[in-house]
Design a protein around this nucleic acid. Structure first.
Lengths: 401, 401
DNA sequence: TTGGTACGTTAGGTTTCCTAACTTACTAAA
DNA sequence: TTTAGTAAGTTAGGAAACCTAACGTACCAA
């Protein structure tokens, strides 16, 4: 720890305040950071020279008189950020300014059968295209990628990607870094979705929460103490393995009694088809259609089979939610996945019975964009070091007259 | 962030190395910390003046020649630490040096019926006694207290202490701080037990692990990212509420299907008594005796009832352990409680069936001292600030000749 | 006895921050 | 229109911590 570190820490402090507040004067920065006015002036001079900060007009002078403040603003166009998501239907890419505001995007259809190499090719081409189109290629600061499966964020490798993709040890980070030469973050899509809720969703400012996603698979993203928790084998939140058939550990539980097998969307569809009454005037459920919309339609027509299936699903999901709540005592549980809209009320009621303290259980508001928003937040974090690196040569500029 | 902060940070860095390594010379400190020799000399001079560090003999000179190093040592007797535990049978107090080595202790029998006020009186008296006996009262740096129930460590208040103590909102921290005028940490005994395993047990150096304690109640302490995680309502790890009777959320589950009700030691005793074969030559199980020892004796005599009961308990505990493993993906799970010695093997086997990655499941080695050891570690952490506060006046001492 | 090596100290310079005083630009009231 | 008051931002000087480079000290080995 030496003088240079002090300067960097103070630069980060100043920039954090500046990014958080929007327009701030030097004097107010001094008040907010606890640093003195000369220090702020010197630091800000360096930032302005590098272009990270710009002067942006005059503020209203104090009512009692006094020189009006010169307002400063973080220059969100100093660089740009990229986020990408690989899912079973497409590769999506977003480009955003340093405040995370998306200004361009691109989606390329893919299928898992294309294989890891080809899908990554699509991703790289897609990235290149948006960067070229926007003319911001030179300013790119960082990239974050939401990938399927179990990911080691330290190495940026997809260790294994479940039933759909059949990836093993795919080094996404290296591939992308080699092509763009900027820092790259890779993580699981559910984890990024949780970060998305934290950055710009329901969980803003929440220290401890869980995002549970329901789909073909079932997974959870855990945020503990304001940070993503991935687990020792990057498998934290793999609640598909939760055991439903309690009071016993019989071998058949391994195939029958696990949460994912019981209430994954494929199984729910089967159950609906099996139980469907065939009532006149009720639409026939079809494989391939939107499961949640279909169930909602059945419910509207007063179809009993749908309501019975949903009751069962709600009951089993409630067990998982209640157990997570009991173990982790989060402040909030966010439910992501269309089906949850139909059963959130029932889950709240059932969980409320077993958990003796108040707990918010909410439906995600970000929908399909959650992972990309979280990835963008992560890209923003990665870019911090580049932005905050304060150049030493700029110290103590002569006054401008 | 200013010059004074730099000095403090570097002082902490140096002292951490010194405490970790034992005997170190100034030159080696420079190498280990990355600071320069003059900086180390200056910092160390201040520490020696304050008595926090002492010179302790000469080291062996380098084989190639050269002046032999003067070895430095952290002065573990610069102050002392206290830890206390309140349990249903006694109030225990330990006194230790700054390295956490206990040099005096005291146990006072109490019963929960005495009430919070009286039990705290006993604790205070006990603390005063050991401090007086050792003559170290003036040097006391901090106190940590393992209390029963749900504790808010920020305020040091026992919010509620379960079935045994019937405490509500007992401000332990204030009471003790007012009496001794040193920083006081209060936390739940299971949490401190987990810290104990981390400081000086099986979990040394483990980032993510869970300690599960079985007794009348069942609770877990969660260490995530090397830090205790208490939850948003200080209820993390309250796995007594886990739901055993799956596939349903029927109302009767609330009394019948919760983990604590099913496998708490009281219930296990009932089960043993109910199932006992009354076989000749087998000792009769008696209420009040040591449950684990009794079960072990029954097993030795080949009693079938005991083995059936244990199988059931193991099966149900396994569900809880497997679920925690699936959700939190810890590196290690530590089992604390006598009963676990009889069923750990079975738990390992059952959990191994559902969790597809390797996971260590071990019996706690610290036994009844775990919570006190963890509390002592916490007291040591609290004392850091006092120890590391580097005095400004000592800068740049003239050379001694 | 001499050269080599490593420990720890001294001297001098750099960087950053702080305090105090100053200039600048505006309001409000005489 | 002038004058006093207030707040923003700059300048000047100094303090505190660090660093580099060189030096004195104590030991080994030939």
């Amino acid at each position: 720890m030496d003088a240079a570190s002090i300067r960097k820490l103070n630069a980060a402090l100043i920039l954090d305040v500046l990014r958080g507040k929007g327009l701030v004067s030097r004097a107010e920065l001094a008040r907010l950071t606890g640093l003195t006015k000369p220090t702020i002036s010197m630091q800000v001079a360096g930032m302005i020279e590098r272009g990270v900060v710009v002067e942006d007009g005059a503020g209203a002078p104090d009512a009692r008189g006094g020189k009006p403040p010169v307002l400063l603003r973080f220059n969100q166009d100093w660089g740009c950020l990229a986020a990408a998501e690989i899912n079973s239907a497409s590769v999506r890419v977003w480009l955003a300014d340093l405040n995370g505001r998306t200004f361009d995007d691109e989606a390329s259809p893919v299928t898992p059968e294309l294989g890891a190499g080809h899908i990554l090719d699509v991703l790289l081409a897609s990235l290149r295209q948006v960067l070229k189109r926007s003319g911001q290629g030179q300013k790119l600061c960082s990239i974050a990628i939401a990938a399927p499966g179990r990911v080691d964020p330290a190495t940026g490798t997809v260790l294994e990607a479940g039933n759909v993709f059949h990836w093993r040890n795919v080094d996404v980070k290296k591939r992308v870094e080699d092509n763009f030469g900027v820092p790259v973050a890779v993580d699981n899509d559910v984890n990024f979705a949780a970060l998305g809720e934290m950055h710009s969703g329901l969980a803003a400012g929440v220290e401890n929460f869980i995002l549970i996603r329901h789909g073909t698979g079932i997974g959870a993203g855990l945020v503990i103490g304001g940070r993503l928790y991935q687990g020792s084998h990057f498998a934290a939140g793999e609640i598909g393995h939760l055991i439903l058939d309690r009071m016993t550990m019989a071998p058949e539980v391994l195939t029958r009694g696990l949460l994912e097998t019981a209430v994954g969307s494929d199984r729910v569809r089967e159950k609906v088809l099996a139980a469907w009454s065939g009532q006149a005037g009720v639409p026939t459920p079809e494989p391939g259609a939107d499961l949640a919309a279909e169930l909602a339609a059945l419910l509207r027509h007063g179809d009993e089979s749908a309501s019975l299936v949903l009751d069962e699903v709600a009951s089993q999901m409630s067990i998982a939610v209640a157990d997570m709540a009991a173990m982790l005592d989060p402040e909030l549980i966010v439910l992501a996945g269309d089906l949850f809209a139909l059963i959130a009320g029932r889950i709240r009621e059932l969980v409320g019975r077993v958990i003796p303290w108040p707990m918010r259980i909410e439906l995600s508001a970000l929908g399909a964009d959650a992972a990309l928003m979280g990835a963008m937040g992560s890209a923003r974090g990665l870019a911090r070091d580049l932005i905050y690196e304060s150049s030493r040569e700029t110290a103590r500029l002569p006054a401008l007259r």
